[in-house]
Every structure is written in structure tokens, then in C-alpha cells.
């Protein structure tokens, strides 16, 4: 029997519920999309794979080129890395093919933000941009372990590296401009805007030409929702996007943490119990010696 991840996680939740029902009484709610959340809509059917978005991203973020040819002539990143925050990949299968864009998805309920021990990763409450602050980061790389899309990348080549990922060009947003990738896209495959509007737009496209699309807006629900959403003609799993449950893994992780440590009740109880027993048993010792 082959289980997909969603079945597995559902079983996990059911199993967990049965095995520790009381601890799920305080289950943390999934976070909701902010009404002013900003994001991107990537429509793979419109993308021609020109990589103009990659060039623009590097330009506005002052990122170094990344060579994959032996002569080091072309900036041709093969995937996301510490030098590349945004990349277009090609998926080919028989006669069909599709481009797909990889970058930070700016999750509604980001696992990286939940994982970071020192608040180096934060979610801007209004725009929902997931920001990284190198001045705060300790470089533990737990965000890389936590991210379901493997987006945060580390500067391995540096002696004192930092994490690199898309910040939705928040330095340009502050100036009232739009991100480098969407402004450079010649075909309108990358569209910047409010996430609510982008979702409406995506559904409108699905409705208008159902035959042209795989009938799903990726990111509407995946992992608790993302602010970068995708449309494609091919199933998203084929394009390398994980089939995630509708809740963020942060929900389960935080539920377990906060039920165990709620009000510090359990640790205080255990401490009191151990202290009482240790004291009693140490006193016994004294009695014997004297």
C-alpha cells in the first residue's frame, strides 16, 4: 500500500488524537491570511522560461551570478541557492512540458518562523512577507529543516554565512514599486498583487479555460496556504511541489510544545514531585549516617 503524505499526516493526527486525546484540547489554530497580504501569482501556462525574472531578481537584490557551464560564461543557476532567490525550472514528460517557478512561498503559517529560536525570521503582520534578518540569525539552519519547500538556503562558501531567501523585494515595496521578478516578466506569467485578488484571478482563469489548467490553485490551501500561488497545466507534484496537508507543520509542532508546556504546569508539577522525593531520600541518608 502506498500512502501519500496527506493520508500519512491525517493518520498521524488521528493516531495522535487517540493516543493523547487530552493534549489536543488546546490545539493551536491555523493562522489566517491577512486581508492586506501581498503575493505573487505564477501561471506556468504563460511562462516562456526566459529567466528575465531571475536576472531582475539578481539585479535588484545585488546577488552574485551562479555558473553551471564549464567556462563560467553564463549566469545559469540550476536551482535555488545562496546566490539565487528565484529560478525557473523545466519539467518534461513525453511530449508535454511545463516551466515552474521556485522561490519563497511566503506561507500564511510559515514553519520557518515557528522554528527559528531567535526571531530572525518574522512574518510582517500586514503584508505577510516572511523576512529574514541576518543580524539576528545564529545560523542554526533549523528553518531549512522546517521549510516544506526547502527554500531557505545557506551561504556555505562563507566563513560566517547567512541564510538567503526571497523577501518579496520588501525594499522595493517600501518605495511603492513591485518586486523585480514580476516587473520584469514579459508575458505576465508572474503577477504581483494582493493575495485575495490574485486568488480570485486564479479561479477566474480556471473557470474561463478549464481545459488549459490542472484544476487546482496551488498554495490556496497547501501547508496552511501560501502567498505565492501557482497555476499549471500539469499536476503540481510533477513540477516538484510537495503534496502537503491543509495545515502547516507548525500547527502540530506548536500544539505539542504548548500543550506540554502550557503555563509551565507539567514541568512545575514534575519538579515539585522530584524535589519532594529527593529531599525525603536525602534525609534518610543523613539519618543513617548519624
Amino acid at each position: 500500500m502506498r500512502m501519500n503524505r496527506r493520508d500519512f499526516l491525517q493518520n498521524l493526527a488521528i493516531g495522535g488524537g487517540a493516543l493523547s486525546a487530552p493534549s489536543f484540547a488546546n490545539a493551536r489554530q491555523d493562522k489566517a491570511l491577512s486581508s492586506e497580504a501581498l503575493g505573487l501569482l505564477y501561471d506556468a501556462t504563460k511562462c516562456v522560461g526566459c529567466q528575465a525574472c531571475v536576472v531582475a531578481c539578481k539585479e535588484v537584490n545585488a546577488m552574485p551570478p551562479e555558473f553551471s557551464d564549464p567556462d563560467h560564461l553564463w549566469d545559469a543557476p540550476l536551482g535555488l541557492s545562496a546566490s539565487t532567490r528565484n529560478v525557473i525550472a523545466l519539467y518534461k514528460e513525453g511530449g508535454r512540458q511545463s516551466f515552474v517557478r521556485q522561490s519563497c512561498m511566503h506561507c500564511v503559517d510559515p514553519a520557518c518562523v515557528s522554528a527559528c529560536p531567535v526571531k530572525a525570521l518574522t512574518k510582517e503582520p500586514k503584508t505577510g512577507v516572511v523576512r529574514y534578518d541576518a543580524e539576528t540569525c545564529i545560523g542554526c539552519r533549523y528553518c531549512m529543516v522546517a521549510c516544506p519547500f526547502n527554500v531557505p538556503k545557506f551561504e556555505w562558501g562563507s566563513a560566517y554565512g547567512k541564510i538567503v531567501k526571497c523577501q518579496l523585494c520588501d525594499h522595493l515595496l517600501a518605495k511603492g514599486e513591485q518586486p523585480g521578478c514580476s516587473s520584469a516578466c514579459p508575458t505576465g506569467a508572474i503577477q504581483f498583487g494582493g493575495v485575495q485578488k490574485l486568488l480570485q484571478e486564479a479561479h477566474a482563469r480556471l473557470k474561463a479555460s478549464p481545459d488549459a489548467y490542472y484544476s487546482k490553485v496551488y498554495g490556496e490551501k497547501e501547508g496552511g496556504g501560501t502567498q505565492v500561488i501557482l497555476l499549471s497545466a500539469l499536476p503540481f507534484e510533477k513540477l516538484g511541489l510537495p503534496d502537503l496537508p491543509d495545515v502547516s507543520s507548525a500547527t502540530l509542532s506548536e500544539t505539542i510544545m504548548h500543550t506540554t508546556y502550557k503555563g509551565f504546569g507539567m514541568p512545575i508539577f514534575l519538579f515539585a514531585l522530584f524535589a519532594f522525593m529527593a529531599r525525603r531520600n536525602l534525609h534518610k541518608d543523613k539519618g543513617k549516617e548519624e
Binding site: S114, A115, C116, P117, V118, K119, A134, E135, T136, C137, I138, G139, C140, R141, Y142, F154, E155, Y160, G161, K162, I163, A250, S253, E254, M257, H258
Partner: peptide
């Protein structure tokens, strides 16, 4: 740790992240 110089942030209440 990639950025060990910042490890003291673990002791600064302003950086504490109780969900982590």
C-alpha cells in the same frame, strides 16, 4: 552554528521565541 557570534541572542528576552 553558521553565525556563532550571535549565539548570545538565546539569552536575550527580546529574541526569545517560545514557539520554537
Amino acid at each position: 552554528l553558521g553565525r556563532y557570534g550571535n549565539v548570545y541572542h538565546l539569552f536575550m528576552p527580546s529574541h526569545w521565541q517560545f514557539n520554537s
